[in-house]
Amino acid sequence: MPSIINDECADFLPNLKSGLADKFTESQASKEYKEKDAAFAAKIKNQNLGPKIWHDSFNRPDGRLQLYVANEGLAIPYVSPMLAESLCDLPPLLLTAGDDERLRDEIIYFAHKSAEPTKYKGPSYNAGKFEKSPFQTPTNTTLEIYEEMPHDFQLLMEHVCTTKSYERMVEFINRVTNILNEPLPPLPPSSYNYINVKGEFGPLKERHEKVLNWDKIGIVPS
């Protein structure tokens, strides 16, 4: 995915073959990690999963793209939920993001894909898979983007947006779980909201909706 910082992709690891990386002896822990990583990649390749589930751009003989999983595992839905064939039939979702965090765009697309699955189906190489999925009922999804807030802003600062976000979380949990055992109205329809620094709600901005036009989801830039 492109980073929100600029129009260049900055969300995968560069290929480091020189510089400081060559000046240190590899640790035993690093060697063991690479061995386990290679075994995991081989296990994925050998499983009979039917059609290939990842894009050819994931095949990088010169190294892995992310620290947390082998390239072959990036398209597994538990690793990259947005690449799943369907995000339907999930429990109600409350998705919260800061407007200045790197994961913002992915969260926006995730929200739309879960709430409007026939319109936002994800990677082009997954074409036809949603129609075959047993999960077809749209998920009730509430998206909230908080103005000027960074990643995990609720843990980092005292702010009107922090207070509002906590209030919304409590309200959502009470409504979904009915932990207070009180009669509650049904959940409102799915919605996509932008909350300014005063805690006021409004629709998403035009810049947020640009992500919905992505045509290369799940494809690593060359």
Rank of each mutant, 00 (worst) to 15 (best):
R102T: 15
L180Y: 05
K36H: 09
N59M: 12
P91C: 02
K132W: 08
Q136H: 13
S86Q: 06
N193M: 09
K31P: 01
K45W: 03
K129A: 00
Y146I: 12
L67R: 15
P2S: 14
P117D: 04
P81G: 03
I53W: 12
T141W: 01
G202M: 02
D152H: 06
W214H: 13
A10M: 15
Q136S: 10
A111K: 00
A42S: 14
E72N: 03
H208I: 07
P14Y: 05
S30N: 11
L87D: 03
P91D: 12
S124L: 04
A38D: 02
F58D: 08
T25E: 07
D56Q: 14
G202F: 11
F24M: 02
D7L: 06
Y68S: 13
K205S: 11
I5A: 13
G218T: 00
I108Q: 00
D7Q: 10
E72L: 01
P14G: 11
M157H: 02
P188D: 09
I173C: 02
N46Q: 13
H159L: 01
S57D: 11
Q47V: 11
A115F: 01
F201D: 15
R175V: 05
D37P: 04
A115H: 03
P185T: 09
A38F: 07
A84Q: 07
P2D: 14
A41W: 04
D100I: 05
S80F: 09
F40P: 06
K119C: 02
H208A: 02
V69A: 15
L143E: 01
N48H: 11
E106H: 03
P203K: 08
S57N: 09
Q66M: 10
K17A: 01
L67C: 13
T142E: 15
L94P: 10
N15I: 15
F135C: 00
W214N: 14
V170P: 05
